[in-house]
Amino acid sequence: MKRTLNYTGRKKIERKNVTISFIRQNGKVTAFAVDKLDLNNLNLRSDAKVYVEAYYRTELKRFDCNTAGNIRIPPSCNVRDMAYPENLKFRILVVDPSDGKLLAHADGISPEEPAEKKSILPVEFSDLENEIWRVEYKGDGGSPILIINSRIPSIQNIAKHDAQFLVYVYPQVIREVLTHIVFVDGVDSTTEPSIDWHGDWLNFIKQFGVQVPETLGKDDEVSKENALNWINDSVTAFCNFYSNKFEEYIRKTEEEHHD
């Protein structure tokens, strides 16, 4: 359940003011770095304590970053002693030293990763009986995973390279995921959605030149229509971006037809 009550005037630390990245050794996450933590616009008392917490499932580790007036990130934010370091999320807490109340907070922060390392749609292969593909929302925070039927011969190769598969499946996957975001989960903010993976998908869509509306609601007919139009525009833009795959599919189909 999403909780947004704020009786204590706790301030929100905007995502754009926090940047965290993983440090890897031999490809494995061993530590993280806080590249940016800007609290200047929040008007916090200078002696407020600042902490960064790394967490995932049962794991939790806190790092003391001194005070809001003099932030000092520990030189080594070691996470070698945590299980699932690749999956860690982060929260920032600013605490009133006099009564232990939270003055400011940000949660669910994912580390910045080079684009090629971060997949917004992991793919798994399993027996789906007579179904070709299915999207299941069982990733972190309910994020989507594309399940493709492992009974199909050479399916791993087909899923990666076959133009017909790409043009048939991926536009519909995108439509499915965007519809889920808007009409199942609901979007509380299109600029800083509280569900982390929503933000990743909205950013993904922006790459194709489709602007995300200020709101993506489902509570009235106009909002629904606007949201559906945005979804359609997004799918169209995706298909246009990969028009070479469509051309390849047409070419192969014509060749087979002539044969």
Partner: peptide, 12 residues
Amino acid sequence: QQFELTYDIYTM
């Protein structure tokens, strides 16, 4: 869940 958003539970 209410305390989580109000207090620094970790140090308590």
